[in-house]
Amino acid sequence: MGVAMLPALSRAAGVAAPFALAVVIGAIVLAATGHEPLGVYGLMASEAFGGERRIAATLTAATPLLLTGLAAAVAFRSGIFNVGAEGCFYLGGMVAAVLGFALGDWPSVLLIPVALVGAAIVGGLWLVGPGVLRARLGVDEVVTTLMLNFIAVDLTSWLVNGPLLARGSANSATAPIAVGAELPRLLPPTTLHLGFVISLALVALYGLWSRFTVAGFRSRIVGLNARFSRAVGIHVSSTFLRMMVLSGLIGGLAGGIHALGLVHRFVAGFSPGYGFTGIAIALLGRNSALGIILAAIVFGALSSAGATMQLFSDVPIEIVEIMQGAVMIFAVAKFGFGQARGARA
């Protein structure tokens, strides 16, 4: 159907182009700082994909990005520029961690779903406000969701330094979750966990949803042209609200999975900006399921390789950050003239 049927090749090129430009810029910076670009890239590739353990590390790093990318995509495709996934991620992580130790004596089959659903619900509720303001009053959601990020981060920071601080801990962290709340590891001893499979499945489900369901069709048409949608009888404001809340649910779930799958508690610095990276991933992947998966893996690779390659070279982390930044800028630039921000209601 429709725009989704762009030839796969040009779509792949669309995802690859910003990355390729970033590689070129990275090479220039490397050469200018006295490093040997090819050697560094070779190391980067092997640290990202060289063997089972490195691939597992990359996929682990890609896991939260799959879902924050998805959270951004479901909003963007409906013409909502929700930048609030970061806040939902924090809150979802906090809720899942708290449920994970507070209900620690529950069996895993009950505890894990309850903690994850709780995380998702809190994320969804968090964005009801911006959703209603946008749908009813046309209040710009960029501003409201951005502000809510600050509130969410401050709120969780206050909780983790106050009421929820683990006893005996000098730092801002909750107690660890019960072992029964931890998501199973897929490839021990690597950190790859069930959350990756859940995230991947959700992105795939989204791909099907967006192409084959009435709701997916409506959200896309609303995103392409809200005025048109209204004229043909699609309920635009309720679509806005629904997609905003769905985006929040996914953002909260992302945080919950991160807490139960990897960090096993909530700590200060819980997210280094996964919600914002998710925006770049959705833009880079043009809101398509395949694009999100590819972009999340690229960013996951940069993250995992960026850390461990320092063990084997003198390349500072900044080079990876420059490349990540460049990918994001080119992704956004592409977005700028590729498609409009979505018709406003």
């Binding site: 159907m1 429709g2 725009v3 042209n225 005025r227 048109f228 004229a231 498609q339």
Partner: peptide, 11 residues
């Protein structure tokens, strides 16, 4: 702007 969604497909 209103009669059609130009960027969407014919169907």
């Amino acid at each position: 702007e209103e009669g059609l969604c130009l960027t969407a497909s014919i169907s």
